[in-house]
Amino acid sequence: METLSVYVPKLVTNKEYIASGHRACSGCGEVLALRYVCKALGRNTIISNATGCMEIISSPLPETAWEVSWIHTLFENAAAVASGIESGLKALKRKHGYIKDVKVVAMGGDGATADIGLQALSGALERGHDFIYVCFDNEAYMNTGIQRSSETPFGASTTTAPSGKVSMGQHTWKKNMAAIAAAHNIPYVATSCSSYPFDIMYKIEKARKVKGPSYIHILSVCPTGWRCPSSDTIKMGRLAVETGVFPLYEIENGEYKMNFDYPKLRPVEDYLTAQGRFRHLTKEQIAEIQQKVIVEYEKIKMLSSRKKGK
C-alpha cells in the first residue's frame, strides 16, 4: 500500500474529523496518525479519549477540534468508559430498535494504555466489547514533560530517566502491548506507524468491521520528546519500520502477518543517531539494541510464517 504514491492519495477522503487549529507541536506525528484514524473511522463514531497529548491539544475549554462524538476520560478509564458506551448502545438497540451503525473507539497515549489504563483495557478486551482501542505510542509522557513510560525504548533519555554519568537512560525494554492485547484472544490486533497513512487507514477500516474488540498500536513520532527536527517526522517513522525497531504486523485471530518485510533491514544506528534522546549511546549499547531488534523481528517473522492448523 505504501508504494501507492502521488496519485492514490488523491483518492482518499478530504473529510477531516479533527479540525486544524489544534495546539499540537509542529511536526507532531501523533495528531497526523489521529487524522488518518478518524478518516478511516468516519463520522458515526464515539470516541472515549484518555488524558494525554491528543486530549490536551484538542479541547482547551471552551473550544474543540473534534467533529465526532468525543468524551474525555481520565488516564485510567478510557477502555472502561468505552465499555459503558458500547453497552449503552446495545441496550438502545434492544429496547428502542436503534439501528445506526456506530463504532465505539477508545484511545489513549502509551502512558494511559500501557501503564495507568492497562487494567481497564484488559478488562474491556476480556469482556469482549465491540470496540476498537487505539494506542498512540510516542514512547513517553510527552505532554507533562517527557517522563518515561513502560513504552519508552531501551536507552532513551527522558526527564525521569535521564542519561548521564550514572545512567544510560531507560534501562528496560519496551513493553510489547500488541502481544499483551493478543494474549486476550481478541479477533484483531495490529501495529502501525504515523508515517504510513495507508497502513493506518487499512487497519482501522478492518478493525471497524470486526465484531468484538480490536487493538491497534500506532507508533507516533514525537519530535519534541525524541529530540529530532520537526521536519523529520515522516522519515523517523519510516526508519523505525525499516530498521526493524518497530515492525508493522497484524494478528488476526491469533495468526501473525508481517505487513512490511524487508530482505535486508537498515542498521538501527540510522534510527538511533538521528534522535537526541539516543545521542549518548555507545557503540556497544547500539550493538546490543541491534541484536535485540533482530531477535524480536525474527520472532514475528517466524510467527507470521506459521499458519493455523500447521
Binding site: L4, S5, Y7
Partner: peptide, 18 residues
C-alpha cells in the same frame, strides 16, 4: 502502474501485486 484503479475499486475486482 500507479495503482489508483486498484485502490479505488470498491469490490476488489482489480488484482495487483508487488
Amino acid at each position: 502502474g500507479c495503482g489508483s484503479c486498484y485502490y479505488v475499486c470498491p469490490t476488489h475486482a482489480i488484482k495487483m501485486e508487488d
